[in-house]
Amino acid sequence: MAPRALWKGQLRLSLVSIPVEIYSARNSGARVSFRQIHGPSGKPVRYQKTVEGVGPVDSADILKGYETDKGEYILLDPDEIDAIKLDTKKTLELVQFVESSEIAPIWFDRPYYVVPTDELAEDAYRVVRDALRKTRKCGLGQLTMRGREHLCAIRPCGDGLLMETLHYKEDLRAADPMFSGIADAASDDELLEVATQLIEKKTAPFDATAFEDHYASALQDLIDRKRRSRKTPRAKADDKDKGGEGENVVDLMDALKKSLKDSQGGARRKKAS
């Protein structure tokens, strides 16, 4: 099945707007997934929302509860939360550029492919890709998707562009409390030399195909063997259980030159003041 675009809009660099589509880079169907089955009846297990002393409840009666440090819940209606969700903006503007190596791995969340929507967008798309590659920079911006605003980094990836959502500062725990118990002492010189030589000896270009998920392979092998065996218990699955168009870039060179001129003019005005 062809992948479905999660977002369509404009990738903007100053006055240059590039129509793009964004796709998840993760293959969610690659791993084995299970349904819980009731052994005696062979029917799928369903989850029912219940309240102690009340029993099953209707979804329409469920509110969101924020627990405070006083041991009470601040109750919010789902409609109140929906009301503050952001409209999906159709523009991802690159507002800042940083060295690609400057962002530590801990900040990265999810990867997405950024693809030009048509041939007319490819020229501008390639210029942005090659400029990022030449400067070894990645572009930062914010993207609204599914009602939430995501901090994003854009950088070259093969022939295209990769977008990675980043965590906000509040999303991550401080590292200092975790590492504060480690003694601040220098490593033994001889041991450090041996460890360094071992690392150098085992250094090689990264190749993901050299690593295998042995658990996933063993699990798939188990399923295949069980499928071939007539002794394997089976349960019948019911059918009910199965579960923007943007502007064309007319004159890319003029737009880039005007963007650069405006940027330099703003810098001179600030200096003069």
Results as ranks from 00 to 15, higher is better:
237 A>K: 09
228 R>P: 00
243 G>A: 13
220 Q>G: 09
116 P>H: 02
237 A>F: 05
199 I>Y: 10
126 R>S: 10
159 D>P: 05
103 I>A: 08
168 Y>I: 07
218 A>V: 00
205 P>V: 05
202 K>R: 15
187 S>D: 12
173 R>M: 08
202 K>H: 15
125 Y>F: 15
199 I>V: 12
103 I>C: 06
217 S>A: 14
156 P>L: 13
212 E>T: 10
235 A>D: 14
228 R>S: 14
198 L>E: 15
126 R>Y: 09
173 R>Q: 14
240 K>L: 06
196 T>Y: 10
130 D>G: 01
193 E>T: 12
143 L>G: 03
146 R>E: 13
131 A>M: 06
160 G>A: 11
204 A>L: 06
174 A>T: 13
206 F>H: 13
154 I>F: 03
164 E>F: 00
133 R>E: 14
219 L>H: 07
226 K>H: 11
181 G>K: 15
124 A>K: 05
191 L>H: 13
155 R>E: 09
168 Y>C: 10
219 L>F: 07
162 L>F: 00
204 A>K: 15
134 K>C: 00
175 A>Q: 14
128 V>A: 09
114 V>N: 06
144 T>W: 01
181 G>E: 14
109 D>T: 02
210 A>T: 08
119 E>I: 07
211 F>I: 08
208 A>E: 13
200 E>P: 02
209 T>F: 02
217 S>C: 04
182 I>Y: 12
160 G>Y: 05
183 A>P: 07
150 H>Y: 15
203 T>Y: 08
188 D>E: 10
126 R>P: 00
186 A>M: 11
170 E>S: 13
145 M>T: 00
160 G>T: 07
106 I>C: 04
203 T>Q: 12
177 P>G: 08
170 E>V: 03
181 G>A: 14
139 G>F: 00
187 S>N: 10
173 R>E: 13
110 R>S: 06
154 I>D: 04
221 D>T: 08
153 A>Y: 00
146 R>Y: 07
114 V>T: 08
136 R>T: 05
165 T>R: 09
240 K>M: 06
190 E>S: 12
229 S>K: 08
238 D>L: 11
113 Y>R: 15
130 D>S: 05
123 D>N: 06
191 L>Q: 13
212 E>A: 13
183 A>N: 11
137 K>G: 04
144 T>P: 01
184 D>G: 01
155 R>Q: 10
107 W>A: 10
138 C>Q: 11
216 A>C: 03
160 G>M: 09
137 K>C: 06
176 D>G: 02
204 A>G: 09
136 R>A: 12
104 A>M: 06
236 K>Y: 01
161 L>C: 12
203 T>S: 14
138 C>F: 05
217 S>K: 15
213 D>F: 00
220 Q>D: 06
240 K>F: 03
170 E>L: 04
161 L>E: 10
103 I>T: 06
126 R>G: 00
120 L>H: 11
140 L>W: 03
127 V>S: 10
104 A>V: 05
217 S>F: 05
150 H>K: 12
213 D>C: 04
201 K>I: 02
133 R>N: 15
